[in-house]
Structures are given as structure tokens and as C-alpha cells.
Design a protein around this nucleic acid. Structure first.
Lengths: 335, 335
DNA sequence: GGATACGATGTAAAGGATTACATTCGCGGG
DNA sequence: CCCGCGAATGTAATCCTTTACATCGTATCC
């Protein structure tokens, strides 16, 4: 691979001029620029990224970590993030942490070592090795949290109002006449689960149904929801609110396995609005998150920090929406 | 951030010794090593990756591109690839190309610029800018193809026998008594689609059913399959073989929408065995691919090339498996 | 005791690009 | 005709690490 020195030699100019042609073309005379470009093409020259990064201290990359890449929910967030990054001249390095703190730390190292300029993490944990960084640099630490939000972490974040979203789900079920409602939550360690649960309790309380709620903990995966739903169905609920669409799929599967029909006997509502949710059988009623926009805004926030712009809003709350499909219906008549 | 020079100064040794302590600890005296490590800890020193890469010409990263990150099929492949990469001391940079040749080229640039040491691509297209590289370096080009396989690309690959897999699907349906079978294929531009179609035709021919096949083209997404299935159902098929599980979900959704039941009226079989397939309603019969192993083997092949080991087998064919679940059943009695 | 060998460490040269500062040159104004 | 200015380009330091080679001291062996 040709170096800038060879290009300079072949074009009869100095390396400084070659560098300028590539990065600030207007500061070079037209004729020189043409000559240099010609040589660049001929030698198929590409600047060595390591050398550039070493010199400029800018990697032009941002790291995006997701807790579980097999969760299709994140795919849309990733898409949005990549677009925004590309727009701003950054490449995205994607890391799948599998909810493993050790892996999270490994990825976080990339930031410590300046392999990447900033980090957007979609989980709920700030890797331990970055806590010192946040404490030291405060608002100018190049770290943004997406989807989740924990005030104590102290970094900017982009998310929906999870409590309001799940309150909407409960309101929807109550309006359909459901009274015995089962909730399949996420692990309480995640603020998202806690917020959604808070919304559920608030809405239920509003209708005097707080004591009639049936709570079961899931892990956002279909499997856990399948088991939880089986137990809840035995308790006689007529509706199930699952904290993710994947869990809703597991719940619907359990409804069928119990010889019941959805939504005839049991209504099911999810959370996220996965692209596949409309193809579930029955098509899934759910709370939609603006997935792509979450990714986009998170990256924009990060890029702003990298450029030294203090964001106006450090916590961005985007709009959610209840999507009514076929998996929820009127509560069956009690007999 | 501290540099190796500061560490060396604080420890009272040369930078060479610090470097050795970190990369070849055994070649340094115990006492020196301890002293240096102490300073490393105290200053929280991390080697600068750009400088190391510049010096060694090794980025310790491999690039993994997927055509569509929202396809859960790839998630498992990615997992396997990451594990294998970690085992070999490499980090994975993940790129989502969205089937866009331009984006593929952008990622391929990372290899040309030595930002990464090698490339595993899961699509069916070798980015144009890398053709020259493959032509020049032949078997030692650090590029491996996963999932798909095109002999003309000339790079090693890891995949299943797609023709055999889809032949198995047809045999399964025929054994259940189905004669009017609809096939929802993928775009013929992808070798995977062509191979699977070839397997279908071969198996159908074996039973004299080649002329009774109903073919429709899909794009591996649920939407396209939903539409294709609607048309095929109107033609009176009793079974649908979809070239992906996602399409199978779309097809099942169309079966329901047409007022028919699956598998009572129409059997549906997919391809891939997504983690969610068993929670579909009905649980999906499908051809399972060893997804994690495909990713793992692809990376292992690549790492072998990077280490200068000529692989014994440049084309690796892994085993697939027919998973019988509830979405396929005996053909309805003709009247 | 002296030659040998080896282990431990230091010296300094890359590796490739960017950029502050210096230089050169031509041109317009006084 | 000279000065000064600005545009264009060059010079060389710098970013940080790795590693071939040199050096030094000590233990080993004859």
C-alpha cells in the first residue's frame, strides 16, 4: 500500500501538500491539486487510519453497545444510530454485550484507549471502568445512554416515557373491560422495568384495580414469558400485558397451549412494536417506541458533546404510541 | 492519558522494558516487572491502539458485515463469530450493509485501509473494491464468506448444503401427503435462493411433482411472503415452503387472513430455525441451520489465513436439520 | 582466572500522517 | 523601484509504540 511519501514524491510535491489536497482542497492551487489527485488515483492511495488517529487523537468512530443483539428491537435503533453517525462523519463499531458486565467492560476499554471517540450504550449499566471518567469530565464525557435512563448514572440519555407507555397499555385493557390483568415484567434491576411497572401500578390504582393485578417477572425473552403466562392463566386473568413483544409472543403461545384463544378468552398486549409484531397470530397490539429515532438522537447528542456543544436537553423523551391490532379485545363475559 | 514514556520514567526503566512487561512478561525480571506493573496501575496506563497498530500493522480487529441486521437469523451467527474472534484475540467490528452495495464498499474500505485485519461477509456480493485484492492475493486474501457461497467469488466460505436442506423440506411435505405445494423463494440474485430452489426442483422431480409446484418470489421478509402466500392460497396449494422463517411467519399470517387454518388446511414450513420459531402460532416446522457454528467456523478460517495457515478445506459445509413442529400436518383429504 | 554464554535492559529507528511555522514568489500600492 | 502582503508550498516536529540490535553484568565451565 502506497504511503503519503510515495505520493508526494511521484507528484513532485511535499507530503504536507498531499495531506492538504485530501483534507482541505481549497487551500491548494488548482493545478497542484489535479496533479496530486492523479497520482493518488494511479497509486490507489488511502491514508493510513492508524497514523491519522495517532496524530489527530480522533478515531472518527463511535462505539454502540447493545445488551442483546438477537433482540430485534435493537436492530432498528442501530439503524438509526448508524445513519446519524454516517451523517456526522463517524463510523459505528457495534458491540453485543449479552448483558455480561465483563464484556461491557471490555468494550468500554475501547473508549479508555481512545480507539473510539465516544460511546452510546443501550443497556442500563455504565461499565465500571467509565465511572471515573464520568465523575471527572461530567457533562463533557463522550457517553450517551439510549433506551434506558438512570438519573444516577449522570450521562445524557434518549428514551420514551416508559411509565406513561405502560399506563396506556393498562388503560387500553381496562377500557376493554378487563379487570383481572396479568403483568409479565422485566428484571427489576433494569430501570426500564421499574418505570414500566410504576406506570402499570399508577394506572391500575386509578381504577381501583391495584390489588387485582397479577405480577410475574420475565426476562424480556419469549421463553420466560411462556412460563409466566402459563401460571397467570391458571390464576384466571383475562388479559396479559408483557413488557416486550417477544414476551408477548411467548405469552400468546402459552394461551394457545392452554386451549384458550387470543383475544377471545385472553387479550395480550406487548411493548416495542417489533417489525414482525403485525404478523404475529393474532397481530399484536403493542406500545410502539420510535426505535430509529432513539438511535439517531442518541448519536446526535454524542456528536454534539464531541464537538464541544453543551446539549440543551440532557434527557430526551420521545413519543410512544399505542398500536391497536388483533390481540386485544373485549373482556369475555363473566359467568 | 499517560503514555509509555511517563510510565518508563516513573518506573525508572526504558520504554522498551515497559513494552516488554506488557507484551512478553516472561522476558523481564520479576522485580522489574512488579515495579512496572505497579506504575501502570497507579497511572492507569493503557497502550494507545493507534500507535500500536501503526507500528505492528496489526489492528487485531476483524470486520463482519451482515446484509440486514434486523434479521434475527444473523444474530446467532454474529454471536458465534464474536466468540471465536475473542478466543483468537480479535475484536469484531460489525457492519450492517442493508443489502446496499455502496455501504458494502464503504465497509470494504476499512480492509483496504488496514483498519481491520480481515473480513467475514455474510452476504452474497464481494465488494467491488476487494475484487482486485482477491485476484492479487488469491488464497491468502483475508476474506471469508459466511452463509452464502458463490464459487466465482474465489474466497473460502462456510455454509450448509442449501439444496439438500430444501429437498428435505419438500420430502417432509410429500411424506405428509401434500401434492400441491407452494414455494416462496428468495431473490434469485442470491446463490442461497438458487441453491434452495434447485433442491426443491430436484426433490419434486423425484416424485413427479415438478409441474405441480407453485413458485412465487419473496425477499426473505414477512411482508413479501404475506402477499405471495395470499396468491398461492388462491391457487389452492395445501402446503407452503418458505425460504426463511420470517417469510413463514408472513405466510401463516396470510393463511389466517384467508380464513384457513394452519396446519389443518395448509401446512407451512420455514428455513433457518429462528429462536422465536418455536413460539410462532402454530410452532414452526423448519430447516435448522447451525447458525452459531457458521459464524465461529468462518472466523476460525479467517484467523487461520491471517496466521498464514492454508486451510485444508476452503469450502466448509455444515449439517442442517429438519425440525418438526406443529405447522405441518397431513394433507387435507381431497374431495 | 578467563572465555563464553545468556539473561536483563537500554538505545534508537521505524511506522505514516498532520500541521505549526517558515519560506518563496508574485503582485499591487505608494 | 521598493515594500509589504497574501497565496502556495515546504520543513520538520510530533503523535506513541514496538523491536532489532547493542550493551552490560554475572554465572558457568574448563
Amino acid at each position: 500500500m502506497a504511503t503519503i511519501i510515495e505520493v508526494a514524491a511521484a507528484a513532485g510535491v511535499s507530503t504536507a501538500t498531499v495531506s492538504r489536497v485530501l483534507s482541505q482542497p481549497t487551500r491548494v492551487a488548482e493545478a497542484t491539486r489535479a496533479k496530486v489527485m492523479e497520482v493518488v488515483e494511479a497509486l490507489d492511495y488511502r491514508p493510513n487510519v492508524a497514523a491519522r488517529t495517532l496524530r489527530t487523537l480522533r478515531a472518527a468512530k463511535i462505539l454502540l453497545t447493545v445488551p442483546d443483539i438477537s433482540n430485534p428491537f435493537f436492530a432498528s435503533v442501530i439503524r438509526g444510530a448508524e445513519e446519524a453517525a454516517r451523517d456526522a462523519g463517524y463510523a459505528v463499531v457495534l458491540g453485543d454485550t449479552r448483558h455480561d458486565p465483563e464484556v461491557e467492560d471490555q468494550y468500554a476499554e475501547m473508549l479508555s484507549r481512545r480507539e473510539v471517540d465516544g460511546l452510546v450504550f443501550l443497556g442500563h449499566r455504565l461499565p465500571a471502568s467509565l465511572e471515573a471518567l464520568v465523575a471527572r469530565e461530567g457533562a463533557s464525557a463522550p457517553i450517551v445512554n439510549g433506551c434506558e435512563y438512570s438519573p444516577e448514572i449522570g450521562v445524557p440519555s434518549v428514551h420514551i416515557d416508559n411509565a406513561a407507555g405502560s399506563a396506556d397499555a393498562i388503560e387500553h385493557l381496562v377500557a376493554l373491560g378487563h379487570r383481572g390483568i396479568g403483568i409479565i415484567t422485566g428484571p427489576p434491576i433494569s430501570p426500564i422495568s421499574r418505570d414500566r411497572l410504576a406506570g402499570v401500578l399508577r394506572a391500575a390504582d386509578r381504577h381501583g384495580l391495584k390489588d387485582r393485578l397479577h405480577l410475574r417477572e420475565g426476562d424480556y425473552g419469549a421463553d420466560s414469558a411462556h412460563r409466566a403466562a402459563r401460571a397467570l392463566l391458571a390464576e384466571g386473568v383475562t388479559a396479559l400485558f408483557c413488557f416486550s413483544d417477544e414476551m408477548a409472543l411467548g405469552a400468546i403461545s402459552a394461551v394457545g397451549a392452554a386451549g384458550l384463544s387470543c383475544p377471545g378468552d385472553v387479550s395480550v398486549i406487548g411493548f416495542d412494536d417489533l417489525p414482525l409484531a403485525r404478523f404475529f397470530h393474532p397481530a399484536l397490539t403493542t406500545i410502539a417506541q420510535p426505535k430509529g429515532m432513539i438511535g439517531r438522537r442518541a448519536v446526535e447528542l454524542l456528536v454534539g458533546i464531541l464537538r464541544g456543544i453543551e446539549p440543551v436537553e440532557r434527557q430526551l423523551t420521545l413519543a410512544h404510541e399505542l398500536i391497536r391490532r388483533a390481540s386485544t379485545g373485549a373482556a369475555p363475559n363473566p359467568r
